[in-house]
């Protein structure tokens, strides 16, 4: 089955190169030159991954990200100008799952796309896990809290599954980066931190005082059994 990638990028040269690269890797590529086009394309196609440049004419990447998230859990990889700017955190908070920064080499890009797809396929444990009020069914990609279905993105879901696979065990950020995002030692820990933050906003009663997903200072995160 051919996987499709929506490439949102205002620069035609980059769009073309990305299209050629991803097509060469066997992906079907849908192109969009602006935020409006992207939202429009999203209605007609069902991409498996969205590659989203944050700097766009018209509605910007952050807004596009937020609008996509209103109705979809599709993995979003943002393309940022720089790795150390606040853009990364802002983009992740707007709902992106991962990022690459310019200038990127095509290999890096396709590796990120494939990692996103792996994440979306999810399901590491076949049976339902119950942690406190949460009931996680990895196979159906469904989380219930006190019987109510929660709206998680694929990456959030994957992160929750990893943490819930051994309740009470502390997972380091590096470990989560590798297991969920497929990064090595030098992955960006902010990916984990922002996703945990987002996840808490959905599963905790009071996200500022988390009772389920807790931080272990200097070590990482764990889920309370």
């Amino acid at each position: 089955m051919t996987r499709s990638v929506l490439v949102v990028e205002d620069d035609a040269r980059i769009r073309r190169v990305v299209q050629l690269t991803l097509a060469g890797e066997g992906f079907e590529v849908v192109e969009a030159g602006s935020g409006e086009e992207a939202l429009d394309a999203l209605r007609h196609h069902q991409p498996d991954v969205v590659l989203l440049d944050l700097v766009l004419p018209g509605i910007d990447g952050f807004e596009v990200c937020r609008r996509i998230r209103r109705g979809s859990d599709v993995p979003i990889i943002m393309v940022t100008a720089r790795a150390d700017s606040h853009d990364v955190v802002a983009g992740l908070e707007a709902g992106a799952d991962d990022y690459v920064s310019k200038p990127f080499v095509p290999k890096e890009l396709s590796a990120r796309v494939r990692a996103a797809l792996r994440r979306a396929n999810g399901a590491s444990a076949p049976h339902t896990i119950t942690v406190g009020p949460l009931e996680i069914s990895p196979e159906d990609a469904v989380v219930l809290r006190d019987g109510t279905r929660l709206d998680l993105t694929r990456t959030e879901f994957r992160l929750l599954c990893e943490l819930a696979s051994s309740p009470g065990r502390v997972f380091s950020r590096e470990e989560l980066l590798e297991r969920v995002w497929g990064y090595g030692y030098f992955g960006d820990n902010r990916l984990v931190d922002v996703h945990v933050h987002r996840l808490r906003g959905k599963v905790e009663d009071d996200p500022s005082r988390p009772a389920h997903i807790v931080t272990v200072r200097g070590m990482g995160y764990r889920i309370q059994p």
Binding site: I14, V17, V105
Partner: peptide, 20 residues
């Protein structure tokens, strides 16, 4: 440097395609 980045990304991409 910023302006150079876009053509650079395009160059890196194109080169990698030729490399294949």
């Amino acid at each position: 440097a910023h302006e150079l980045r876009t053509p650079l990304t395009a160059m890196l991409g194109a080169l990698s395609l030729v490399e294949q």
